[in-house]
Design a protein around this nucleic acid. Structure first.
Lengths: 227, 227
DNA sequence: TGACTGAATTATGAATTCATAATTACGTTT
DNA sequence: AAACGTAATTATGAATTCATAATTCAGTCA
């Protein structure tokens, strides 16, 4: 009976961690906003204990900040943090690209090709939502294709911190075209299974995305009200 | 009064997270071992609530694994996990090396030089303990020198998972000499502020360390008893 | 009228309690 | 005596309670 796989029934606090993290990542809970335990408890229909456990985890992941005796607030993504995060993400994506070239089956590559076509189509249709989704799927597939759980989990955390819905509205036409071009070249490297080449391009792609964000932030001057 | 710095009185569960993590990292709590809440509560003199919050955080950091209704166990570092972790760490160290070259002041480099000399001295004295300490200090200083908190925190987590005391006993004379040589070359690159060169060497250094660990594990056949 | 003091309220950190799943101990049956 | 089934015990997930730090608000005085 050593083969028996443990049945996975998610415990209450695990469920809450996921739910709350999603609320932060998809920008339902805005940065700097207070996270009142009471309201969330009645919203989710749970007691404070599992919710507080979840908040502690979210805090260690960096999605919320805890102030002693003053509860939790959604973490602000400061410019400094962006500047720290992107170089790290870009290196993780580089590694992912290299490993994906080595580990992906032909079927996996074909699947990414399909999503790439979806993305290009969304680009021509100027469908930001569809583009965003396809883009995310591609990166996700490449990370998964690396078959490295540590890489995947750390990437997921960092990507979650940075991926706030509002960033997408910052996508300029110029940068959008550039990004598409970068993806085309990435696909070529992937088809050729040029591991180092793909890694290099993915790193660059991330750093270019980074530059575009910074530019948009400097131009738009994100209000970032109150504390 | 806007300059008033909030006084930092660590909350109970934060303290516990650190304490418990240390117990795991320094191998006081052995991999696979059960982490009984009751005993730890009376050992630390706290109630179950903060301790359980701490365990949730430790679990999200990967130091313990929680099984529903069956409590927490110290996470085992499997071979697969080592194989996943080292490539990621090596890339983080590579980035750290590049950034450290760019950001470290001369004084910072001099400090690392001093610790390097300590390390070489410990090597010649065959003092594994002192060597280990100096080595860790050097890597730590380089990571800190990168001045990237995201990089630092993620590196710390991964290093903590891998850094179990017993690994040091695996250090063969051959590998030890090799490691010293690698460090010598790293120092040369750092002095020259050759960012890419140092990054490259640090990546390699980590992967060589990785290979040595794997070799030792395969040879020694770590017993890894019970589940 | 506006700023300060202090009580009342609220929210949070932590302890305790409760319900239930898991484990252990025991007795029965073959 | 071994194996199964069931009851007793234990440990855990979650709710509730308690103590205290923060915040709010009313009242006072300049």
């Amino acid at each position: 009976m050593t083969l028996t796989q443990a049945i996975k029934r998610p415990t209450l606090h695990e469920e809450l961690v996921d739910r709350l993290r999603n609320l932060v990542v998809d920008d339902t809970l805005k940065p700097g906003e207070k996270v009142p335990e009471k309201e969330l408890c009645e919203a989710f229909g749970v007691s404070r204990t599992p919710l507080r456990e979840a908040l502690k985890v979210l805090a260690s992941e960096g999605f919320v900040v805890l102030q002693a005796n003053r509860g939790a607030r959604v973490a602000r993504v400061t410019r400094q943090e962006l500047e720290d995060t992107f170089p790290v993400i870009s290196r993780l994506e580089q590694l992912a690209g290299e490993l994906a070239c080595a580990h992906l089956e032909d079927a996996g590559i074909a699947d990414i090709e399909a999503r790439h076509r979806d993305m290009v189509q969304a680009y021509h249709a100027r469908d930001r939502q569809a583009y965003f989704q396809a883009n995310q799927d591609i990166h996700q597939a490449l990370i998964r294709g690396a078959q490295n759980e540590i890489l995947e989990s750390h990437h997921k955390l960092l990507a979650g911190r940075v991926r706030r819905a509002r960033f997408m509205v910052n996508l300029s036409d110029e940068r959008w075209a550039e990004a598409i071009d970068e993806h085309e070249r990435m696909m070529a490297k992937l088809r050729a299974r040029d591991a180092d080449g793909l890694g290099q391009l993915m790193k660059l792609h991330m750093m270019n995305k980074f530059a575009a964000h910074i530019k948009a932030i400097d131009a738009g001057g994100d209000a970032e009200p109150e504390g």
